[in-house]
Amino acid sequence: MRVVIDYERCTGNGRCYALFPDLFGDDESGYGQVIGDGSIGDDQLDEARSAVVACPEDAVAIEGE
């Protein structure tokens, strides 16, 4: 499983990396970035689901759930 950010939608609102710093970081323009390749374990699935809801642009998704 991976978390991914759709850059067609991400506008750098920063909710993902503010709330879930284990899963996301920020780039120098304030846009979200997944940490590493975005891979998550079962224990991080709840957080990832919360991140999907937190992003006001619906830019965060979970692949391979």
């Binding site: 506008t11 609102n13 304030g30 006001p56």
Partner: peptide, 19 residues
């Protein structure tokens, strides 16, 4: 509080000054 809101707008014009 962890649900996204629209106070800063959305899309390409989303507030530049939100941070």
């Amino acid at each position: 509080a962890d649900r996204g809101h629209m106070t800063f707008g959305g899309g390409i014009h989303r507030c530049l000054g939100s941070h």
